[in-house]
Nucleic acid binder design. Structure first.
Length: 266
DNA sequence: AAAAGATGGTGAC
DNA sequence: TCACCCTCTTTTG
């Protein structure tokens, strides 16, 4: 689930479901229990997404930082017909609840409470987030143009661009026709510009769909039918290129599995 | 039943 | 570069 689009979608959904009213805060799993007790009964004034990081601005003046990592998930559990919320499974690190809905967080890499400076320290390490209005594409441009690291590694580097993960890196490079092993500094201006524009539009689409679909709408069979995961990408997770049918190459790049089409990406 | 893997990241060397 | 953390699902035997 979690690349940047997931986090922005969570911020939006949580604002609607939870913001501005007193919340019940619990940590059945236990690791956030002391903090949850402090926050119980308080109000989240604002949910903020930055790259893959989610921040809750509480009325206590403190901030909760949530990072889903690879395994983290958020589940929304509405109350039943009698207004009773389902019991939280024991693995739930943090439950925030109103009278009508519970939002359960499991498996996050990080869930911690701290001062606003905590948020600033984290954001200071991040490159521009294509989903934020305040994103500066020139920072991305500079980060890529200066580096001899492969572009496939740079797209995963959160200090170069914040919010792109393994699926979007493969798909953005595919759409732009760029081979993942090319050093960043060898890309030409037009290629860097195309990459930025591509991640912006892919991530935006991801927020809308609440899932990753990188294949052009026009190439999807019937737009209303649900696209199976395997058909939602050009190269990622596939055996054969969705566009030309060639065997997809798959190897480790920056500790993750890279997928690329040898024909479509020179 | 066990193992492998997954859309992520850190810290130690 | 590697070990490791977090949880759950899918694949393998």
């Amino acid at each position: 689930m979690p690349e940047g689009h997931t986090i922005h979608r969570l911020a939006r959904d949580h604002t609607r479901l939870l913001a501005g009213r007193p919340l019940v805060a619990r940590s059945p799993q236990g690791r956030f229990a002391a903090s949850a007790a402090r926050l119980d009964g308080h109000v989240v004034e604002r949910f903020e997404a930055y790259g893959k990081h989610l921040f809750q601005w509480w009325d206590t003046g403190e901030v909760v930082h949530v990072h889903l990592g690879l395994f983290g998930k958020v589940r929304v559990r509405p109350a039943d017909g009698h207004g009773v919320l389902p019991e939280a499974p024991p693995s739930v690190r943090l439950r925030l609840a109103t009278d009508t809905v519970a939002v359960d967080l499991t498996g996050p890499t990080d869930c911690s409470l701290g001062p606003p400076e905590l948020r600033d320290r984290i954001v200071a390490r991040l490159g521009p987030d294509p989903l934020r209005r305040d994103a500066d594409p020139e920072r991305f441009d500079a980060g890529v143009a200066r580096s001899r690291a492969p572009i496939g590694a740079l797209l995963l580097d959160q200090s170069v661009v914040a919010g792109v993960g393994n699926v979007y890196r493969a798909e953005a490079l595919f759409v732009c026709g760029i081979h993942p092993e090319r050093p960043g500094r060898e890309l030409v201006d037009a290629e860097r510009a195309a990459l930025w524009a591509t991640v912006v539009s892919m991530l935006r689409q991801g927020v809308k769909d609440n899932r990753i679909v990188t294949v052009d709408r026009a190439e999807l069979g019937r737009p209303r039918t649900r696209v199976p995961r395997r058909e939602a990408t050009y190269a990622y997770g596939r055996d054969h290129c969705r566009r030309c049918g060639a065997a997809i190459a798959r190897w480790q790049l920056a500790n993750r599995t890279m997928y690329a089409c040898p024909g479509c990406q020179r």
